[in-house]
Simulated scan of single mutants.
Amino acid sequence: MAVFTPVSLDDLSSWITQFDLGKALAIKGISSGIENSNFFITTERGEYVLTVFEKLTFEQLPFYLNLMRHLAEGGVSVPAPIANRKGSIINELHGKPASIVTKLAGHCELAPQPVHCAAVGAMLACMHMAAEDFEIRQPNLRGIAWWNETMPVVMPHLSDNDKQLLTTEMAFQNAFAASDVFKELPNGPIHADLFRNNVMFDGDQLTGFFDFYFAGCDTWLFDVAVTVNDWCIDIESGELDQARVRAMLDAYHEIRPFTAEEQIAWQPMLRASALRFWLSRLYDFHMPRDAEMLTAHDPAHFERILRLRIEHTAPALFTTAG
């Protein structure tokens, strides 16, 4: 969500005439994130979010945008893509694919309490179930195949200790992905990046999930692990907060009960989630791209989390009584 492709109000004013949104009144770049160019825009009809896609192609984008449309129509609170007068939700701007979606109300909750974690867990379960019948299938592009491709790229930049950690964990994850337990894990479309800054709240009321542009088909448990590893930790240490973990998992489990195989896979999946984001942050840190307002995330954060998930047993996914 950094700005790689600047868009002026004049640019927007001419481009937006293909939509029934009235005249463009204002545009403001969004500074957080590192993948796409995002803007808050205001028109005569209201406020929206414009995204210019920097990596995703015209061929890949139907999965993401139609998934958002499918979820919105299924009652899950996510930004809904806006079609132009020809019915297209993917259009070209400055030679790149672009889209407009509705803007969610509220703000990001950056200091979540158990009540917020429970709301996120419940909606995540609803999202997985609502997406189960989504017809387009696209793999998680930042899944294990990408981890194996990225490992040799970042390896020369690591200390000996970090090289050992990465080598050992990749061997573990490759073996786990080939296991019978992994093959039995429920799967389907997942958000894959449901951090605190991708969820909106109005007070304690969850108003929606957004930024689906890392979504793909993978195990639902991986999505839960990604979410727990951000929402339910002490940011400074990376340690799990037991009350927040329990609130999120119990709320999810009440709507979409976890399976016995998921219980076995829980610890490996928490490690997998930490590994995925350690690798992506290493890549972005050591192979930076030019952009307005871009600040790369610190890779050490997820290195700490990965070491903690290896060393310490996480709370059970569900209790036998559940």
Results as ranks from 00 to 15, higher is better:
266 W>T: 12
50 L>R: 00
106 G>Y: 04
20 D>M: 01
72 A>N: 04
207 T>S: 11
251 A>Q: 05
312 H>T: 13
35 E>K: 06
53 F>R: 04
196 R>N: 11
305 I>V: 15
181 V>R: 03
197 N>F: 10
194 L>Q: 11
59 E>H: 09
174 N>G: 14
129 M>P: 01
36 N>Y: 12
143 G>Q: 03
152 P>K: 13
33 G>S: 12
65 L>T: 10
85 R>Q: 13
28 K>L: 04
130 A>G: 02
80 A>Y: 12
130 A>H: 07
96 K>G: 05
104 L>D: 00
276 R>V: 08
84 N>C: 07
226 V>G: 02
107 H>Q: 14
176 F>D: 03
153 V>S: 10
124 L>T: 07
301 H>Y: 15
254 E>V: 11
237 S>C: 02
199 V>C: 13
116 H>C: 02
313 T>L: 13
202 D>S: 14
315 P>V: 05
79 P>T: 00
28 K>F: 02
201 F>N: 10
128 H>T: 01
159 S>Y: 06
62 P>N: 11
222 F>P: 02
233 I>D: 08
294 L>G: 03
119 A>V: 05
290 D>M: 13
260 A>N: 14
302 F>C: 07
193 D>F: 12
143 G>W: 05
269 M>W: 09
309 R>W: 07
313 T>I: 14
122 A>M: 09
50 L>V: 01
216 G>A: 04
231 W>I: 08
243 A>S: 15
39 F>G: 01
290 D>C: 07
135 E>Y: 07
321 A>T: 15
23 K>C: 01
74 G>N: 13
89 I>L: 02
182 F>N: 06
86 K>L: 14
192 A>K: 11
25 L>G: 01
160 D>Q: 15
168 T>E: 15
119 A>C: 02
176 F>C: 06
15 W>S: 05
44 E>S: 13
73 E>K: 15
39 F>V: 02
164 Q>S: 15
247 A>S: 06
173 Q>K: 07
289 R>G: 03
246 R>G: 12
23 K>E: 09
6 P>C: 03
170 M>V: 10
234 D>P: 04
101 V>F: 00
143 G>H: 04
201 F>R: 06
60 Q>S: 11
170 M>Y: 04
91 N>K: 10
114 P>W: 03
79 P>F: 00
161 N>W: 14
139 P>N: 05
227 T>I: 11
83 A>T: 06
59 E>C: 03
140 N>M: 09
54 E>I: 13
61 L>I: 10
87 G>Q: 06
41 I>A: 00
321 A>C: 10
194 L>E: 10
142 R>G: 06
